[in-house]
Each structure stands twice: as structure tokens, then as C-alpha cells.
Simulated scan of single mutants.
Amino acid sequence: MARGLCQGVSTAVLYGSLALFISILHNVFLLYYVDTFVSTVFLIWNSLNDPLFGWLSDHAFLSSPQSGSQITSPEVVLKRLQALSRSGPLFALSFLGFWVAWTWPGFQFLICLCLYDGFLTVVDLNHNALLADLAVSAHDRTRLNFHTSLFSAMGSLSVFLSYSFWNKEDFYSFRLFCVTLALFSMLGFFLISRLLRLRFQKEVHPRNSESHSLTE
């Protein structure tokens, strides 16, 4: 079934749809959490986590003997897709962590904010880095960017839907709404990452291997 769906959907649509699963959560997060729970500690963490998680994400590539010209090899793309299939669902779970009471509220929200922002950095970094590897020509990159923008705009609809569920006196409906968003995002990251991996292995990887052989 996955292979059949992979053949019927373009790479641009698959790549762009990853932005949807980020956007539907992050737009709601920005509206309801950041303004309320931001603190000095979180601001310090936010300034450190981008280079930290960026380095951790690429550490396997930087420490590999295949560096330099080999940094955009098909193996790197497959590793990034694997990272998205893991970190995407964890990003969605960290989004839900705000609504499950497990410790002192102030400490809970500080930890959840740091986890959420950390996983968001990993997901964003790997998603954006895939653009250069999946699209070589300017035309292809424009097409992928267009679909990314389109799906990001679609993801912003989650904010408008959230107004129907937000109630400071009773969070039950809003919690169910957030659970639905998170489950949709988790499933989307897992499925789309798998489809992109199948598409890359079937079409892009063989072409790169043939081109590499001709170059040698």
C-alpha cells in the first residue's frame, strides 16, 4: 500500500506535507503557550539549543570519514529521513506534555518548553536540509518550496479551529483537540518519512549512483 501511494504522489507534495505536521502544532503552541510560560531560563535555552541540536544532528556526518564532497551522499538523505521519522513523533509527544500533570506546574512547563523547542529544532533542521539533497535544479527547489509554503499555510488553520475548543474554565475539549493534532502529526511524520525514503531509494538514489559511476 505504501509503495502504491508513493508512486501516486510527487516528491514535492511529500516533502511539502512535512511542513503541515510542523505547522499545525507550532502555530497552536505559539498562540497558547509561549506568551504565558516564557521565562529567562527558557530564553537562555532557546539561544543555546539551535547550535547544540544542530551539531548533535549532524555529528554522525561530521565525524564520518566520508566528509567534504560526500556530505550530500544518498546515505545522508536516508539518515535525515530516519531522523525525521524518530524526532517527528517525539516532537508531537512533547507538544502533549504540557497537558499531563506529572510534577510541579512551573517546573513541568519549563521542561516541556525546552523539550518542545529542542525537538522542533531537530525537525526543522533535517527538513530544511533535505531541500538541497532532494532538488538539484532551481526549478525543483522552487517547486518544493512552493509546496512547503502551501502546506504551512494549511497548517495555520489549526489556530482558527482551536478557538472553537479553547475554554480557560474547562480544558477537556482543548486537550482532546491537542491530542487529535498530535496523533495526526505523529502519523504524518512516520508515513511521509517512509514514503519519501521509498521514493528516494527507487528513483533518486539509482540516478545518483549512475551519475557517480559515470563521473568515475
Rank of each mutant, 00 (worst) to 15 (best):
A60I: 07
T103A: 12
D117C: 09
V38Y: 06
K168E: 14
S85A: 15
S162A: 13
A83S: 11
L14S: 06
P51L: 01
T148I: 13
F200N: 05
S87V: 11
L5W: 14
L62D: 08
T11H: 05
D117W: 07
N145E: 08
L43N: 08
K79E: 06
L84R: 00
S94P: 12
H212L: 15
K79I: 09
Q82I: 09
A83D: 07
H147G: 06
C112K: 03
L90T: 03
D140Y: 03
F165C: 11
S73P: 07
K79F: 11
T121W: 03
S39M: 06
T40H: 06
I71W: 11
F91N: 02
P74N: 01
I24T: 06
F107Q: 14
G106K: 10
L14K: 12
K202D: 14
C114I: 14
A138H: 12
I22T: 07
D133K: 04
D124P: 00
L115I: 05
G97T: 02
V77K: 00
Y33C: 07
S63A: 11
V34D: 01
G16T: 05
W99R: 04
L196P: 10
E203G: 11
F151T: 01
R199E: 13
T40N: 11
V34S: 09
C114K: 05
A92Q: 03
G118Y: 03
L18I: 10
Q70D: 12
L131C: 10
F37I: 11
S94W: 05
L48N: 00
Q82D: 10
L110Y: 06
F29N: 07
W55C: 05
L93A: 10
Q7V: 12
N167Y: 05
S10G: 11
Q201I: 08
V28G: 00
H205S: 13
W45Q: 06
L181W: 00
H205L: 15
I24A: 03
L214Y: 12
G16C: 07
P65W: 04
L214A: 15
V179F: 10
G16E: 04
N145L: 11
G88K: 02
D133G: 14
S152R: 07
G118H: 02
E203L: 13
S158G: 06
W104M: 13
S67F: 08
A83Y: 10
S87K: 02
H26L: 10
A182D: 02
S85P: 03
D170C: 03
Y116I: 04
L144Y: 01
L81G: 06
R207G: 05
F146L: 07
G106T: 15
G106L: 15
S137D: 12
L157V: 09
S87F: 14
F151V: 02
S137H: 11
L198H: 13
A135E: 09
G68M: 00
